[in-house]
Design a protein around this nucleic acid. Sequence first.
DNA 1: CCTCATTCTGACGTTCACGTAAGATTGAGT
DNA 2: ACTCAATCTTACGTGAACGTCAGAATGAGG
Lengths: 170, 170
Amino acid sequence: MSNPTPAKDAPRSRNGEANLRIGDVAKLVGTTPRTIRYYEEIGLLPESPERAAGRHRLYSEAEVERLMDVMRLKQLLGVSLEELKTLLAAEEARNVVKAQLKRGDVDPGRRQALLEEALGHIERQLELVRGRAAELAKLEQDLSESRTRVRRKLREMTSELEPEPVGQAS
Amino acid sequence: MSNPTPAKDAPRSRNGEANLRIGDVAKLVGTTPRTIRYYEEIGLLPESPERAAGRHRLYSEAEVERLMDVMRLKQLLGVSLEELKTLLAAEEARNVVKAQLKRGDVDPGRRQALLEEALGHIERQLELVRGRAAELAKLEQDLSESRTRVRRKLREMTSELEPEPVGQAS
DNA sequence: CCTCATTCTGACGTTCACGTAAGATTGAGT
DNA sequence: ACTCAATCTTACGTGAACGTCAGAATGAGG
């Protein structure tokens, strides 16, 4: 009734690297294909280099994770996509490092530089997150206090006017 | 160079209730007059009933607080102004209660209803905030772990290729 | 090989949350 | 009473973040 699609499981096509199509990815992360293309368009997501014009995009699980991170940061930090781009320099660096590792391309100097760069970005993110967390905690506290006050008022009221028995108007 | 205004302190005009003008309020909460008018326009802020068309708006400290709450919720929860309107029903109810108190207008039934309504709204806000806080905490944890991993990699690297003594750079 | 859902690339439309400009009006200070 | 910055209303403009539509192309399944 609500599932007209045959619900394909894993349309893996090339090798064992689990290739997903844009629609699948969209559903996995809870967004739309358009948004994914848009993020690629503005440089938030890297454009698959393996892809000639007109060809369909293919994603790996790793890229799904990345996209999830992006959405999470966007949601929780409430920053613009432009700011996100700068924040995501961290993942960039880490991805490069991973790619290096996979290909055995290990230039120690460059690798160290990248790692340090990533570390810096991660620390900036952490500070941002902690700042937000602190503000949120304060807000939570304020709300708790408000709730307590309102509750007390209610208790005072009910204890004041409850003494009379249940009279019923008709 | 950047302060052509005489920096008036408190342009209190009517009575002792500290009347502020829209520009003052804007500076106090860190926004612009336009934004304040806009919020009023969409019903986020109540329009001063004491004000005939064309007259300047005047605000009390209480309204400044309210506006600050609004900005805070907007910032920290990242919700739309439309959602905020529904969330702010709490402050609405509480304001009405306060107004009742000031005028000695104490209809116990109505008062209790309002308080209970406010309580409900506050609890909804609290849940929202707590949800956010939890997500943020998770994010912070993830980031911390990432940082730890990157740091370890760096330590491994430097311990591998540091054996050579310290060359100094100027 | 054929089919048909899915994806592709523009390009224009839309909603939100204000910014900005214009011309008239207000009101705090002298 | 006069001045002049600040505020008023109205209306159009803007940037961000997508939505939507059209027409062509792709590619997974039978």
